[in-house]
Design a protein around this nucleic acid. Structure first.
Lengths: 141, 141
DNA sequence: TCAACTGTAACTGTTATTATTACAGTAATC
DNA sequence: GATTACTGTAATAATAACAGTTACAGTTGA
């Protein structure tokens, strides 16, 4: 899995956890354990997909633009990791005169499309709000 | 996804397609479009997991040791790609004093375990025999 | 006008992936 | 029993993907 997906989910959960719903790229980066530039890149994408609002300039940062309970991991997945299951490496060669070698690429592709849908469906069942609940439940235990 | 998984599936389908059910690492490599050493490494693993039999020496090669209809992609997945969904890159830091940063790693891990099971279940529904059928259906069309 | 932010691009370092080379071991065939 | 055609495995090299860093232009609040 794309690690940007993880950064995105983590960031959204963090924002959902903040009383004022805001955080800067540096705060998020510290919490996630990466660098601010990477966070900004991911957040920029989340902004374009309507997950967060940005405020540039002094005192700026990121803020959730939807309810945590209304954002599923599937939404995030579609925004920045869709199709990541299929490997870049592709088997077979369409020019091959063997039935198997020439068509395997296409069949394999179909298999991974199905797998991707399956995965997306699973992510559909988990919201950012639920992620936060799991975290608080874990802290109390 | 692990590209060894793809090589394994392709190899098994190719063996299933051969009238005598046999092929050498070089023949497989040509069909898959990779090098024989890589194929041997994957096949070696398939042998250890009971998918194929090996015959060393002149005229040797690999042979299916089970019916194509009895081998699911889930079997192959478990043998050489299980848990590949979760990224190596891990977010958060258990030592953090923030609720989110300190526990996110664990929660994320649980999410990916679930995703992995989901994926495995999907692969359970596809056999090597079916892959071959899809290929022949495609050729006729 | 300054300080504190975001948005990007360019570059560097690190890690993972794939291909290659080499060689020991095994079995069929002459 | 030598030769040929294979597998098994280790070591190395080449390539590609990934993550971190630096730099700087643009925006906004104080």
């Amino acid at each position: 899995m794309n690690s940007e997906f993880i950064i995105a989910v983590h960031s959204l959960v963090l924002l959902a956890h903040r009383p004022d719903g805001m955080a800067s790229s540096e705060e998020i980066a510290t919490n996630v354990c990466t660098n601010p530039v990477r966070v900004r890149k991911v957040m920029s994408c989340l902004r374009k997909n309507g997950f967060v609002d940005t405020r540039e300039g002094s005192g700026g940062g990121y803020k959730l633009s939807r309810e945590p309970g209304d954002m599923t991991l599937a939404d995030v997945y579609r925004a920045l990791a869709a199709g990541s299951l299929a490997p870049k490496w592709c088997s077979g060669d369409p020019e091959s005169d063997c039935l198997v070698g020439s068509n395997m690429g296409e069949v394999m592709n179909a298999v991974f499309c199905g797998a991707d849908q399956q995965l997306e469906q699973y992510f559909e069942s988990i919201t950012i709000g639920q992620m936060l609940s799991r975290l608080t439940a874990m802290a109390k235990a």
